[in-house]
Computed example of a mutant assay.
Amino acid sequence: MQSSLPLEGKTILLTGTSKTTTIVDDITALGGHAVIAPLIGTCERMDSHDEELLKSARHFDWIIFTSQNAVDAFANKMGRHQVIAQNFQGKIASIGTKTTTALEKLGFQVSFMPSIFSADIFVKEFPHIAGDHPSCLFIRGEKAKSTLKDGLPFDLKEWTVYETIERHDQTSDILNCIHHNPDITVIFASPSAVDVYAKDIAAHVGWQATRIAAIGHITEAALEQYGATVDIMPSVYTMQAVIEELMKVGDKS
């Protein structure tokens, strides 16, 4: 019987937006020390045409969400204009369990999720169940790549509902954390967070100072473009899967 918890002595730095309370509890229960240091934030993009756009959205065959942030911004608009999930006639497609959970809390039923939580897998699998020439609306953030627009074989309308903001207020805390913790893992869930880290942190301490974990191969590719070695990249693109992989690895030397 092991005397120590699987994450004992490990510090795990979370760089995404601050929607991480449940994973912090999980890390703590496993003996690890979680540090929330978001390098990006989001804010809803307000538009004077929001009410009209919501009315239009009701009539699409499919509405596609690829992030929890998009769901949150969409929910704000629904609340502001007194629209409920039952007002939408189309089906819902989602990437990721967190996105799906957020949609279900709003009252939506998700009809499609790709086998791997990635946009490029989505564009391969979705056409097989979408129907003939479906009308589709992608609820997106302003930094969303053109993967869906370019990859789907039918017309896709897009509605940008939130913006991503770089945060540079965490730099000193992160550098201090790295200097004082011998076994630290930094988890990245988006290329946007990688960009900020590269400028604010890696420029001072390099990429070898910590273990690097990536959620998703797009994030992994962004890290590798900066010359970082990705130590952990689970096949399931979730924070929980990263933690499970981290429980299997030894100390960072």
Rank of each mutant, 00 (worst) to 15 (best):
D72G: 02
F126I: 01
R45D: 07
A37F: 02
D231Y: 13
V186G: 00
I63W: 01
V186D: 04
P134T: 10
T100Y: 05
L175K: 10
T219K: 09
S192A: 12
G131W: 09
H217A: 09
H128F: 12
I165T: 14
E51H: 07
I201G: 03
V194Y: 03
V71N: 07
L14I: 04
D26Q: 12
K252W: 15
S111H: 15
G16C: 08
L175C: 13
A75I: 00
D173W: 09
A57E: 10
W159F: 10
A93N: 13
T164A: 08
H49I: 01
K91A: 11
D50A: 15
F126V: 00
R211F: 11
L152R: 04
A73W: 06
L223N: 01
S192G: 06
T229S: 06
V123F: 08
L39K: 04
T11F: 11
L175A: 11
I63C: 07
G131H: 10
L103S: 12
G131F: 09
E51D: 05
M233W: 10
E245N: 09
Y237G: 08
K145I: 02
H133R: 11
K248S: 12
A70T: 00
F117W: 14
I12E: 01
S192N: 12
A119P: 05
I218S: 14
V205Q: 03
G216H: 01
Q225W: 15
G141V: 06
F65Q: 05
K149F: 11
Q240A: 15
Q170N: 13
H217T: 12
A189G: 14
N87R: 00
M247A: 12
E104S: 01
Q240N: 10
K199F: 06
K105V: 03
V242C: 11
F108G: 06
A73G: 09
R167I: 00
L54H: 14
F74K: 01
N176A: 13
L30W: 09
T99H: 03
F108D: 06
A70E: 03
I64N: 09
L223V: 00
A85F: 03
I121S: 04
A222T: 06
Q86C: 06
G96E: 08
A222S: 15
K149P: 02
G9P: 03
A119N: 06
S135H: 08
G216P: 02
I232H: 09
T28F: 00
I40P: 02
D50K: 13
Q240D: 12
A85I: 00
I187R: 08
M233F: 14
T97N: 12
L103F: 15
E51I: 04
D200T: 12
D183P: 04
T28L: 00
L7K: 08
M233T: 13
A193S: 10
W159N: 08
S56M: 11
G31D: 06
T171Q: 13
D26I: 11
K98C: 03
I36N: 08
M78S: 06
H33I: 10
K124G: 04
S253I: 08
I12M: 01
Y237T: 08
T101Q: 15
A228K: 00
I178S: 06
D231W: 13
